[in-house]
Design a binder for these strands. Structure first.
Length: 272
DNA sequence: GGGCTCCTGGAT
DNA sequence: ATCCAGGAGCCC
């Protein structure tokens, strides 16, 4: 569930609360969640927290980095020492800073997520990052976006979800941006006019920006670093609103399945 | 480029 | 008891 705005919310909270901390130790409850040995990070300092699409990259001292993907149900939670761990806690980072001792906890009920520990100079070679597409609100230009759309006949919504073409968009923001741009999710991407591409590009920027400003969407399992919920779910126009009136035209929101994903749209506004 | 798979909690 | 959520790697 965490998409670009949710991961960005966590990144910003980490920037505020854990950067410059010393990692005094690590407790590993489930080895399979970590791709390499994690012992080396004890004694390192947290220098910065970056985000690439939905991937978090924590830069440590001594050329070491920790890359974390939350996938569906992964969570990072900051706790005071003595607070009980969330269910399905797999890794605990023990932190020391001038604010006192804290615990950074990685939990993931479905265990789709992963943690990589590797030299900072190797991070950019991670297959996921090598193949990652450009990112809205960052380096993806409208010109790029039009070119990407016109290069494939795949359904536009499937294209929006393809991290190797465009990074950061997940199911929620794909549905919401298509509704704003009045584009049907199954239209072949190369059938979109330049104007439609422009409208969709603007819509993507708008929903991601609003998602970030509302602290992400917690329609289900997402929680931020402090365990709090986002608020964007209260502003969904179509996502999870099957049968409810379209906010623009009152037609009941339709639900279909596209590439195995639940897809919400207005059959009137987003006519094919 | 579509379908299957990983996994568990929650809805039905 | 069964179905379903979906990010992304993997299989053809």
């Amino acid at each position: 569930m965490p998409e670009l705005p949710e991961v960005e919310t966590i990144r910003r909270q980490m920037e505020e609360r854990v950067v410059s901390s010393l990692i005094s130790g690590v407790t590993l409850f489930r080895e399979s969640m970590v791709r390499e040995t994690i012992d080396a990070i004890a004694g390192k300092h947290i220098l910065a927290v970056h985000r690439f699409g939905k991937l978090l990259v924590i830069t440590l001292s001594d050329n070491l980095s920790v890359c974390i993907h939350l996938k569906m149900t992964g969570r990072l939670t900051l706790l005071a020492v003595g607070e009980s761990f969330p269910v399905h806690t797999h890794v605990v980072f023990h932190l020391q800073s001038k604010h006192g001792d804290q615990l950074l906890v990685f939990s993931d009920s479905r265990r789709f997520g992963f943690i990589h520990v590797l030299p900072s100079t190797e991070v950019s070679k991670l297959p996921f990052l090598v193949k990652l597409g450009k990112e809205p609100l960052k380096d993806l230009t409208i010109k790029d976006f039009i070119a990407i759309c016109h290069k494939t006949k795949r359904p536009i919504k499937t294209l929006l979800l393809d991290q190797q073409r465009i990074s950061g968009i997940g199911n929620i923001y794909a549905c919401e941006s298509l509704w704003i741009a009045k584009i049907h999710p199954t239209i072949p991407a190369n059938a979109l006019t330049t104007n439609q591409c422009g409208a969709l590009f603007s819509a993507i920027e708008a929903v991601l920006t609003e998602g970030i400003s509302r602290g992400g969407a917690s329609d289900n399992t997402y929680r931020n670093l402090m365990g709090g919920k986002g608020k964007y779910q209260n502003f969904f126009k179509v996502y999870m609103r099957k049968g409810k009136p379209c906010p623009r035209c009152t037609t009941p929101i339709a639900f279909t399945r596209l590439a195995g994903r639940g897809t919400f749209y207005c059959p009137h506004c987003q006519e094919r």
